[in-house]
Design a protein around this nucleic acid. Structure first.
Length: 132
DNA sequence: CGGTTTTGACCTGCGC
DNA sequence: GCGCAGGTCAAAACCG
């Protein structure tokens, strides 16, 4: 449930695509990702909105039981001492916040843009959390 | 050379 | 029992 033009969303974890299928509702293909960290078998389903091609619906299946990888591809510049500045609890909270809003989005399309902006605000903020 | 993406085939659950 | 739809596997291709 994030607005993005690309499927490869860097959410702090590394994903390996293991499948792709076309769905009937959407005329766009749906991609299946799995967390590359062997400790947790979290799965992720990325589907493109049938209304707005610029919006992808990301459905997480399971919970991450580990911190994000030591070196995140594409965001390696933000790893100075992540564990220190961001305890797991904080991340878990963020995780819940990321999961909760989508349900409201479905019921309140009017808040869509606000939530999208919120989503866009969360990522940079937590990236900059260890920035002096 | 290792990890990742791609892509078709294969498997399973469900409705008729 | 069959067909459809969704989900997964695995081999080859691809890329740093």
């Amino acid at each position: 449930m994030t607005k993005s033009e690309v499927d490869h969303l860097e959410d702090g974890y590394r994903w390996r695509k293991y499948g792709q299928k076309a769905v009937k509702n959407s005329r766009y293909p749906r991609s299946y990702y799995r967390c590359t960290t062997q400790k947790c078998l979290v799965k992720k389903r990325v589907e493109r909105s049938h209304e707005d091609p610029s919006i992808v619906i990301t459905t997480y299946e399971g919970q991450h039981t580990h911190h994000y990888p030591s070196n995140v591809r594409g965001s390696s510049h933000m790893l100075a001492n992540p564990q220190s500045s961001m305890p797991p609890s904080f991340h878990h909270d963020l995780f819940l916040q990321t999961l909760t809003p989508p349900l409201q989005q479905f019921n309140l399309p009017a808040n869509y843009h606000e939530l999208l902006l919120l989503q866009n605000s969360i990522h940079p903020s937590f990236i900059n959390s260890n920035q002096p």
